Amino acid sequence: MAAGGDHGSPDSYRSPLASRYASPEMCFVFSDRYKFRTWRQLWLWLAEAEQTLGLPITDEQIQEMKSNLENIDFKMAAEEEKRLRHDVMAHVHTFGHCCPKAAGIIHLGATSCYVGDNTDLIILRNALDLLLPKLARVISRLADFAKERASLPTLGFTHFQPAQLTTVGKRCCLWIQDLCMDLQNLKRVRDDLRFRGVKGTTGTQASFLQLFEGDDHKVEQLDKMVTEKAGFKRAFIITGQTYTRKVDIEVLSVLASLGASVHKICTDIRLLANLKEMEEPFEKQQIGSSAMPYKRNPMRSERCCSLARHLMTLVMDPLQTASVQWFERTLDDSANRRICLAEAFLTADTILNTLQNISEGLVVYPKVIERRIRQELPFMATENIIMAMVKAGGSRQDCHEKIRVLSQQAASVVKQEGGDNDLIERIQVDAYFSPIHSQLDHLLDPSSFTGRASQQVQRFLEEEVYPLLKPYESVMKVKAELCL
Rank of each mutant, 00 (worst) to 15 (best):
A3W: 09
G4T: 15
G5E: 14
D6N: 09
G8T: 15
Y13C: 13
A18Q: 10
S19I: 03
Y21G: 08
A22N: 15
A22Q: 10
M26C: 08
S31V: 03
R33V: 14
K35P: 02
R37F: 10
W39E: 06
R40D: 00
L46T: 01
L46W: 00
A49N: 03
A49D: 01
L55V: 09
T58V: 13
Q63K: 10
S67T: 11
L69E: 07
N71T: 09
I72W: 12
E80T: 11
R83H: 11
R85N: 01
R85S: 01
D87E: 14
D87W: 04
V92T: 12
G96L: 07
G96T: 15
C98M: 09
C98T: 10
K101T: 10
A103R: 13
A103E: 08
G104I: 10
I105T: 08
S112V: 00
V115M: 08
G116V: 14
N118K: 00
N118A: 07
L121G: 07
L124D: 11
L128D: 04
L128R: 01
L130V: 14
L131Y: 06
P133M: 11
K134L: 12
L135F: 11
A136S: 14
R141S: 15
R149W: 13
G156M: 01
F157M: 08
F157G: 04
P162G: 04
L165M: 05
L165K: 02
C173P: 00
Q177S: 15
L183T: 13
Q184T: 14
N185Q: 13
K187M: 11
R188I: 07
R190C: 11
D215C: 08
H217I: 11
L222T: 05
V226C: 09
T227H: 13
E228T: 13
A230C: 05
F232V: 03
R234F: 07
A235M: 13
A235V: 13
I237G: 07
T239V: 07
Y243N: 08
K246M: 03
S253T: 12
S253D: 05
S253P: 03
A256H: 03
A256T: 08
A260G: 11
V262P: 01
L272M: 09
A273T: 12
L275F: 07
K276P: 01
E279R: 01
E280P: 04
F282N: 15
K284W: 15
I287N: 06
S289M: 03
S290Q: 00
A291F: 04
P293A: 14
Y294H: 01
K295A: 03
P298H: 01
M299F: 06
M299I: 12
E302K: 04
C304T: 10
S306T: 01
A308K: 02
R309K: 07
V315Y: 09
Q325C: 14
W326Q: 06
L331T: 02
D332H: 01
S334H: 05
I339T: 14
T347G: 11
D349S: 12
T350G: 08
L352I: 13
V363T: 04
V363E: 05
E370I: 13
R372S: 05
R374Q: 04
R374H: 06
Q375I: 06
Q375N: 12
Q375T: 04
P378W: 01
F379R: 04
A381D: 08
T382A: 08
E383G: 02
E383M: 03
E383P: 02
I385Q: 01
M389Y: 05
G394M: 06
S395M: 09
D398S: 11
D398R: 12
D398L: 13
R404T: 06
L406H: 15
Q408E: 14
Q408K: 13
Q408C: 13
A410D: 04
A410I: 02
K415A: 09
K415M: 07
G418L: 03
R426W: 07
S434Y: 11
H437M: 05
H437P: 01
L444D: 01
D445N: 13
F449N: 04
F449S: 03
T450F: 05
T450H: 00
G451W: 04
R452N: 10
R452G: 07
R452A: 13
Q455K: 14
Q456I: 07
Q456K: 04
V457G: 03
V457P: 03
R459D: 09
M476H: 15
K479W: 15
K479P: 15
K479S: 14
C483Q: 15
